[in-house]
């Protein structure tokens, strides 16, 4: 079943690593502005699902459709271009480029999209302000705290105004206070820009920021609201 108005839809995804079935017939969909939490224990396949949805890896079978595009039918260069233009990413440890300043890190996706340096940095500065880390602009990632770094990573993910944000354990390396602040800022900003958020987490309090939760276990997905619909 493909819910009407979905932005990103996956059907019957299968992905194996050797003998391990990471995804075993997974269906998934998300609407614009929706926040969906993907939960599950370690090794359940939730990160693999995120990678397949984002076109980082191709499933063994099944399709991923983004708007009118079939992501699974694209070549590597097309998928890279799609990720550059329409997707944003937040990882557990931020994965900021250590040699660039925080401002340059946030501006990087824009620059990869061909935006001029000054224009990119102006946008980046706005996002840093919005994420309440404007004072980190001239610093390198190694010179800021973990919480600040993760907010910079969120700013980087949002800077290019993506239509889908993929967040893989975005608060996994933060204390609860910082984690909650980061989640508030991320989900607020996403809703403001009508971006969909695929949030991979194993923490219930992080999943609480989502509109909907699905659980991945042994490569299969269970939609927690399915029974209520």
């Amino acid at each position: 079943m493909t819910p009407a108005g979905s932005l990103l839809v996956a059907e019957a995804l299968h992905k194996s690593f050797g003998q391990t079935h990471a995804l075993d017939g997974v269906d998934f969909s998300i609407h614009p502005g929706e926040v969906v939490a993907v939960m599950g224990p370690s090794g359940s396949g939730k990160s693999t699902l995120l990678h397949c949805l984002a076109g980082i890896v191709l499933p063994d079978s099944g399709t991923v459709r983004y708007g009118d595009h079939e992501v699974t039918g694209m070549n590597d260069a097309q998928r890279s271009a799609l990720r550059r233009a329409d997707f944003g990413f937040v990882f557990q440890f931020g994965q900021l480029v250590p040699e660039l300043t925080c401002l340059e890190n946030v501006a990087l996706p824009l620059r990869l999209n061909g935006v001029k340096r000054k224009e990119a940095q102006r946008h980046a500065r706005e996002w840093l302000e919005r994420l309440e880390v404007e004072d980190t602009g001239g610093k390198r990632p190694g010179e800021v705290s973990g919480g600040q770094g993760q907010r910079v990573a969120v700013a980087r993910a949002l800077a290019a105004r993506p239509r889908v944000i993929f967040a893989d354990e975005p608060t996994g390396a933060l204390d609860s206070l910082n984690g909650e602040r980061v989640m508030t800022l991320l989900t607020d900003a996403a809703r403001d820009t009508n971006a969909a958020v695929v949030l991979v987490t194993h923490e219930a309090r992080v999943a609480a920021y989502s509109d909907r939760e699905i659980v991945v276990r042994d490569g299969k997905v269970k939609d927690m609201l399915a029974g209520l619909r």
Binding site: A54, A77, R84, F89, L112, A157
Partner: peptide, 16 residues
């Protein structure tokens, strides 16, 4: 390694 994978994830072209 981790950083390079992350850069690839958000669409950094290989030639860059």
């Amino acid at each position: 390694r981790l950083l390079l994978s992350a850069l690839d994830a958000f669409g950094t072209p290989r030639r860059t």
